[in-house]
Design a protein around this nucleic acid. Structure first.
Lengths: 112, 112
DNA sequence: ACATTGTGGCTAGTATAACGGTCATTAAAT
DNA sequence: ATTTAATGACCGTTATACTAGCCACAATGT
């Protein structure tokens, strides 16, 4: 009974993960795969797959996305996934333009 | 030197995570926050934030998305995130329509 | 030029995720 | 109705993610 992990997540984070889990479960059933089958293909245990489909926030993002890919879930969005992925080049450019280090001279504006 | 974890990830998974990490780093710098600041706000260590921005696949999805939300990264896509999130209701419906258990009578079609 | 400090990388310790196995329940097929 | 097996849940073990702290380097501001 020592040091119970006390982590808080925003509503957006919780809903997004829950959604992704449901999309995975939906994709799996549409393809008529059992939990064991999908877990086997993904190289994970059935217990972990159950956590993922349940939307457990503590699962590794790699496992989460890997399972999603296996059941045909389009990452990031329905039909613009490729567009988003292609943006990775432009993001590199934008990163290169920014100063390599951040030095907050004043104060960071808390816009929440 | 026993049992080195040997995990493989699809290219899509790797690129998606890498992209998300870069988006986070971009968002952080655009808001002129230091790694320590963002890590502090997210309630994680700086080392973990560095792993996230690097696109490390072994990070918890909850931490990954939480940091993304903090720096204003729109989850799933640029401007249709809310649409996707609203679809959660319809997904529940679709799940309810499917049989509650999958019994593969024939063989699962390997469409890869 | 100098001082400041953000960043990358490393370590050991600790919390915990993932695994493999088991069991009860119950939907699905006969 | 009976049989089969997919699912949900639990547990002990093992692997590892996260943490706190440190150092070296170098970009930024003066």
């Amino acid at each position: 009974m020592q040091s119970v992990k006390k982590r808080t997540y925003s509503r957006i984070t919780r809903e997004a993960t829950e959604l992704l889990g449901k999309l995975i479960r939906l994709g799996r059933k549409e393809r008529k795969m059992t939990e064991s089958e999908l877990a086997g293909r993904a190289g994970i245990s059935r217990a972990t797959l159950q956590k993922i489909e349940r939307g457990d926030l503590t699962c590794e993002i790699g496992l989460f996305l890997e399972v999603a890919v296996l059941v045909g879930v389009k990452l990031f969005d329905a039909d613009s996934s490729q567009v988003v992925l292609m943006h990775i080049g432009r993001i590199n450019d934008k990163l290169a333009l920014l100063p390599q280090r951040v030095r907050p001279s004043v104060k960071v504006d808390d816009n929440f």
